[in-house]
Amino acid sequence: MTLPADATTREAGSTAPGGFRRFIVERSRDSSLGLLAILLLLAVILSFVSPYFLTATNLLNIGRGIAIVGIVAVGETIVIIAGGFDLSVGSTMAAAGMAAAWLIGLGIPLPVAFAAAIAIGIAVGLANGAIISYGRINPLIATLATLAIVRGLSYVISGGRELVVSDPAFQAFGVGSVAGIPYIVILLVATFALFAWLMPRTRFGRYAYAIGSSAKAAQRAGVPVKQWRIAYYVTSGALAALAGLVFVARTGNAQPSAALGIELDVITAVILGGTSLSGGRGRIWGTFVGLLLLGVVNNGLILAGVPAFWQQVVKGVILLLAVLYDEIRRNRAEEA
């Protein structure tokens, strides 16, 4: 006996006549094309509003302005794709930045101080991952706890004091550029490019989608879910620490209250970029587009001379419209 022919052809039939359309529908679920269109529209408007908007200096300024949030957002995107959440990134940034500033102040060579800062990020990530994987604690609660603990420890160790970094090499990392492009913008783009390239090509990436989609299914398929989850939080922690270094290099100081509340900007960029809060879906490049939109809005409001209070309102409205438009577009695509 062979397969009942009519049954399978009917199954397959849905791909045959509308195959291309179906293909587009499935792709559009994740794509950030709509957002990109909004971004371009906004850029066109702003270039009419301010003669400074479309200048090389300003575009690099936008890049500088989003570098810190962006590097953190890469790790956050991965964690959220894997069905998790990391609220502790701001605290990790502060702790890592403080550690680096302190070590540099003691005369420790830069690479060692950098490594120590990244190690702190990795340690926080390990703690987050272990608590969530083995303690079976909800990631929101677990990372809210580590947010407080890590921030608190930064205060305890520093006595609430800020540290000023005057190492010229470190400052150059924050403000210097090569061929006119700031180092931190290069670092930002490189971080995005690296992970955008890795996600579809490695088990690291594929399992993030699998675990976020269905941790149970991944577990049954033999994926060591707990270990991979830890790996994602470690990635997030390490990238947060890297962003903490950029923060210190850029502002010239490290303080325990640094990056307070930055997780909101980070998560906004991730969600704008189309990553699903329920996990399983999202794109690193989508986050980049979301981040750019945030950066352009922030920059444009200043260039347009919008008063501070209205800036917040306008920002909120633009973000809401962007998400709404994206949602409508997606629903239309799915119904099609």
Partner: peptide, 8 residues
């Protein structure tokens, strides 16, 4: 008011 960032 962030004195540490003054130089930057």
């Amino acid at each position: 008011w962030q004195s540490g960032a003054a130089e930057a």
